[in-house]
Structure formats: C-alpha cells, structure tokens
Write a protein that binds this DNA or RNA. Structure first.
Lengths: 231, 231
DNA sequence: TCGCTTCAAAGGTATGACGTATTCAAGTGG
DNA sequence: CCACTTGAATACGTCATACCTTTGAAGCGA
C-alpha cells in the first residue's frame, strides 16, 4: 500500500477500479455514495479523491460530482497508476507501452552509464552479470528475476539521470509482471544472458556505443517476445 | 493552477518551495504551522499534504509531522513536480534531465509515428513543418514556439504510444522554458528547421529509420546547445 | 420560444471532539 | 551505571456537524 490509513484503503479499491476501466470514463461518483460504500467519513473520502485528482484520474466539480477523466488525461507515468493498470484488464496495453518505453530509454541509459557510472557501480554491474549467468543455468526463476531487476535498475541509476533512475521501479514491475503471467520463456535464453554480460563489460570498458547497442538488442528482444505472446 | 480551491493555493506555494529545495530534504513541517501560515483550516492543509504525499514529496508520520522526502523518492515524472522544478532553482538540472529524456524518447517516437501515424496526422505534420519554416524566416519567436510545440507533441501523439503521447506537455514545458530563459538562439537555425522538415517527410514516406535519425539529430542538437549554455 | 429567476444538489471549508500511534524521558530495578 | 519499563505529551488520523458557494436545471413569465 502506498498511502497510509483509511484513505489508502479507499485508494486501493477505487484506484484499480478506475484504472482497469471497471468504472468507465465519464462515470460520475458522489462523495456520499463513496462514504457508504467504504464505511468511512467524508474526510477520508475527500482525501482519497484528492489523490486521484492529483493523478488526473478524476475531477471533482460542484453540483456534478466526481467524474472519471478520459484516459488521455491520466498521469500514465504515476507509479500507482502503472501498478493498477498492470494488475487489471489493461495489462497487455500497459505492457506494450512500457515495452516501447524501455526500448527508448534503456539503451540511452546504458550509453550514459558507460561514461557516468562510478567505479562501484561498474563493479556491482559485473557482479550482477555473473549472478545472472549462474541463476539462469540453475533455472532458478525467482532469484533470476531479482538479479535481472537489480541489473536493469542499476544501469538506469548509473546513468546519472534522475528521471531514468526513477524508471527503475517501473521496469521492476514490468519484469515481475512478465514472470508472474508466464510471459517468459521457462528457461532464460543464453543469448539474452550473453547480452547482459556484454552490457556490463561495455559499461566497465567505458564504451557507450557498444553498451547502447547491446542493451537495445535486449529490450527489443523483450518487446518482440511480448508482442508475439500477446498476439 | 492544477488543483482547485484552497488546497490548490496551498499547493502552489508549498509545492514550489519543496521542489526548489527552499524547504530542504528532511525538513519537518507541522500541520498547525501550515494552517497559520496560509490562514486555512486543517481540512485544507490535510488535503494539500495528501496530494504532496501522492507525489512522494512528503511523508506524514504521527507524533513527528510532515517530513520532506529525499529527492530520490520524488515522482520526477509528475507534471506538477516538473513544472515546479523548472520554475525554481533546480531549473538547469531539470532541463538537463529532460534533455536526455528527449534524446531517448523522441527519436523512438518518430520511428513509431512513421509506421503508426494516421493520414490526418501525416498531413498535419507536413503543414506544421511548413509553418515552422515560415515563422522561422519571419523571426516570429512566439509563433515559432507554438508551432514547434505542436510539431513535437504531434510526433509523440502519432507514435501511438500513450506514454510517449503524455510527454507532449512536458516537452512543451521544456521548449517554453527554453525561450523564456533565453536559452535559444535568437534566430532559429535553418539547419534545425530543415531537420524538422526531414522528420515530417520521413514520417509521411513511412520511413522509420530516417525519421528516427533526423529527430535524433534535432534533440541531440538541442541537448548540446543546452549543455553549452549551462556550462 | 427565449430568457430570467429561483431552488436544490453536491462539493468546499471551518471547527470541535476524540482516537491512536509514537516518541521521549522519567523512573525503576538490576 | 546501564537497561528496561512505563507513562505522558504530542501531532497526526478520523468522525460528525454546521454552514457556505457554486452551478445545473426546473419553472415561470414575457
């Protein structure tokens, strides 16, 4: 849960309902209705609605009520919105969007990391690449996922760009979702593993072009695979 | 103003103060203190704080107060946060981050637009490229900015990726900020203009590679220029 | 039919009361 | 002298109520 207390509980039910389209665009909710539905006071409902308003999921107007905004206005980069959509019926659309985003961002992040990463980051990256190889051979999907997330997050963080770094959690959500919904080959491909090591080596060798190219191959492969599985 | 009513007023003052670092990380505010400072009731303060909490700018804990979160936790993709940082002392850092993001995203968006754009989008894009040429010759900076924003927003939208599309407003803020703070050559360069036309033509000709390459040259040029001006 | 008035519905704000977690410190025992 | 317990102070959390403001829509009259 991201936000605490009763408003958090309301958000955890209302947010996914809206993000998944269960409550459609243009639907109108009344505050009193929500109070009854969740058995909480006006204060709590209002605070929850304010947060949703901050994400542009809803807008509140006098004499009308709380209306669900058209999707095009939603803050699709908000981590909560992303999580809610990944959990709901919009999952595949969200995964596609995130896939394209990864193809755009991660190669650039890898290139930047090759020039900006600290020595510690470079060492950690090499270490993670080895871990990936080992856990892949052992077919230990759970640990593999952990290391995969750590690897991609670290590259994003090492890029030195705060916005790229912030996408680490989102990428983590994508990778997790991919394994959870069995959208992944049961045995991690050795080719992908080799590419991860290539990325790590290129970043250690301060070779931006190579790091970018290898990372692009990784994320493009992931996107192709996704499109194949989703039809 | 993004959020209405008194909470919006509080946000418009508190948000920028936090985002600009005027109120530093780790600082602790008390609700009562904010009530007095803004002359509003608990209700209003609490709702404003909830929104800030949704952006991860602050966290509220019992017996402690409202503490400003470390920057690394902020939702740096939230449009409000971006605007606040662009308006404050963090402006140059924010512009750099956004510059790198553009280099990553816009070429990818251009490539996608070349294959996904509708015929209407393609026509509109050609038209905007012409408008850009004309207003650049006339040295009409204000109108030029309008068309420039329209051009880049349209490419992002035409990519068919909702997340890319959502970055349109952010790019608009960057372009606007660039002219406002005189970080732009007084007369738009003819080279950049030619590249814009190249992008439009490539998208119309359904040539993803060319569109991507031309757009990359544009945004890389913008980033170089920015780095030059900021030292 | 058009335009004005009036009314009521729904959110917006203020305030008082009470609940509750959390911290800090005093006190206690070893 | 240290560690643990205990209690009270503090600041947020929640509820309930009252009243204000806005605004859509019904109703009325010209």
């Amino acid at each position: 849960m991201e936000i605490q207390g009763l408003p958090g509980r309301v958000l955890d039910e209302l947010g996914p309902a809206i993000a998944s389209g269960e409550i459609p665009e243009g639907a109108v909710l009344r505050g009193e209705e929500l109070e009854e539905r969740f058995g909480v006071s006006r204060t709590v409902v209002r605070e929850a609605v304010r947060v949703l308003e901050g994400m542009r999921l809803v807008a509140s107007r006098r004499r009308v009520g709380i209306t669900v905004q058209p999707k095009s206005l939603w803050d699709v980069f908000d981590p909560m919105v992303i999580r809610w959509r990944l959990a709901g019926s919009d999952r595949s659309a969200q995964l596609r969007s995130l896939g394209s985003l990864r193809v755009a961002v991660e190669p650039a992040a890898a290139a930047l990391a090759a020039t900006h990463a600290s020595d510690d980051d470079r060492r950690e990256l090499s270490s993670l690449a080895v871990d990936l190889t080992v856990t892949a051979r052992a077919a230990d999907l759970k640990t593999f996922l952990t290391h995969d997330i750590a690897f991609h997050s670290l590259v994003l963080r090492a890029s030195g760009n705060e916005m790229f770094a912030h996408l680490g959690d989102t990428v983590a959500a994508v990778l997790t979702g991919r394994t959870e919904y069995h959208l992944m080959p049961h045995q991690p491909e050795s080719y992908a593993i080799r590419l991860h090591r290539e990325v790590a080596e290129a970043i250690c060798a301060k070779d931006p072009a190579h790091a970018e190219q290898a990372m692009r191959t990784i994320v493009k492969g992931a996107l192709d695979e996704l499109n194949q599985q989703l039809g």
